[in-house]
Design a protein around this nucleic acid. Structure first.
Lengths: 273, 273
DNA sequence: CTTGACTCTCCCCCAACGGGAGGTCGTAGA
DNA sequence: TCTACGACCTCCCGTTGGGGGAGAGTCAAG
């Protein structure tokens, strides 16, 4: 009835390591029933076994040792610790939410790179005509130099988070190239309308366009625009604004990457005929 | 073009603390462009800014500093690190899964205690007749002493995990009290059939029963059985096997609790008439 | 009495920094 | 000119929950 266990035996009974037991003793979380004066040997009894069971259970639920001390100090029934359990559940729920966000971000990057990889093997891109579906986007319209849109994408992505439903793109409202006072709108496709100050959500209309994928740094986009505009002119199409650039592969979330490998799809809407 | 930033300026630019920057330097993760020989002052350049952006992004994704060293050592494009990203995603998915399990466990305990608390305010329990719905349970039938069922519930709960759909219960196949060689089956309601060796899943039939909630330690269950059986006899009902005990509140997942507060519902099935 | 298994205390180690002590340097104000 | 202040440096200790190991003492069996 009154038998005592050495620390090794107790370790096997409870599944806790000897090191952990000594640690819990030091923290006064699980104090052996008897400590021999001369040798310092620890001896544990059946009450210790019960306490150890509680400790194991609570640790598996993710409570810290400090919290355990709080909890075990003056509670011996689960009814008394419901508040602790609720708080812990709340913590876990938050943890899960942030982890899910991270997974979503990782997924976006992985998918982006996978698609870009598939495109990279294309030897040379040609002008295409295609039908664009309607697209819900969140954007920030601005005036300035084209290269000012970089940080704006950062802001958009961070602000929209899990609502993002496609690749970053930019709308251009000038019919021509402008150095300093361009009128454009960095934006990103979203699943649903999102309220956010400074960010406008609306639907880009469906319609036909001519499209060309440009490979290389943004400074050389002019050449691809030239090819596209020539094509539009030859066919007698009527170009419409805003034109779009879709950044299939550009400076990423993580690295700036190699500009020679950037892929940008230029889309010039044309009148349906 | 070639401007350098002191560690304080660089800290503001990148959002990393001065302490963190010194730490990354020590780990050779982010080495300043120049370190003044005399004073040891660190000076950072634009390449350092790019590298810091990558570090911030990867740290936000939850990579450890050691992993960062690996990743940054020989990759400068997101396409190169897709494998790392995939592994990280896998880790996160596992983390989310275990956290969800914990939340489910917490939920079970909280709900259990909430229901028990409501019952605890009942002054005195009376014999009731009621209709039991059919119930899918997973159980382990065994022979031995009644108190051997305790650890079996532990096993069941751990094995079944998130499939559990109700409170622990025990079926008794003997028509009478047995000391040593009882035939009984600890079991637990489940949502769906689960394959597991040693565990049998089946449906308990619906039917009428007489029921009494017993308050107090299990040693005193006999008194409540007596009341119930007397009731059955008085009404001339025909008792059927197995009888059931539902552990509304007993030794919990965490604490053994106070046996005087245990609540156990005894259910004795009777023939439909 | 010896041997081997156990146990003790004490110290260092992990990650990713944060806090603070104590020293150096340059500048600005009294 | 003196002093205060701000920015920077290195070095050391703290955090969590123990793990690993050294060196010494203890227990039980042969």
């Amino acid at each position: 009835m009154n038998e005592l266990f050495s620390i090794g035996e107790f370790s096997k009974i409870t599944g806790l390591t000897v090191k952990a037991l000594r640690f819990y003793h030091e923290r006064e979380l699980l104090v052996p029933a008897r400590v021999e004066a001369g040798s310092g040997y620890r001896y544990y009894d059946h009450d210790n076994v019960q306490a150890a069971r509680a400790i194991v259970a609570l640790r598996e639920l993710g409570f810290s040792v400090a919290e355990l001390a709080d909890i075990l100090a003056d509670h011996q029934d689960e009814a008394d610790i419901v508040e602790f359990l609720r708080r812990r559940k709340q913590q876990l729920a938050e943890q899960i939410e942030t982890d899910r966000q991270l997974v979503a971000n990782l997924d976006r990057i992985i998918q982006q790179e996978t698609e870009a990889k598939a495109l990279m093997s294309t030897p040379q891109f040609e002008v295409e005509e295609k039908q664009l579906p309607a697209l819900l986007v969140a954007g920030i319209r601005m005036r300035g130099r084209y290269d000012e849109c970089g940080p704006v994408f950062g802001k958009l992505c961070r602000a929209l988070g899990r609502h993002i439903a496609g690749k970053c793109m930019c709308l251009y409202y000038d019919g021509e190239y402008r150095e300093d006072d361009a009128d454009f709108e960095p934006c990103v496709p979203v699943k649903r309308a999102v309220e956010m100050e400074g960010v406008a959500v609306r639907e880009l209309p469906a319609g036909r366009c001519v499209s060309l994928v440009h490979r290389g740094p943004y400074q050389q986009l002019g050449r691809s625009y030239e090819r596209l505009l020539q094509y539009v002119k030859q066919r007698g199409y009527q170009m419409q604004l805003p034109t779009r650039e879709v950044y299939l592969k550009g400076p990423g979330m993580i690295f700036r990457g190699n500009p020679k490998k950037y892929l940008t799809e230029i889309q010039i809407p044309i009148e349906d005929s």
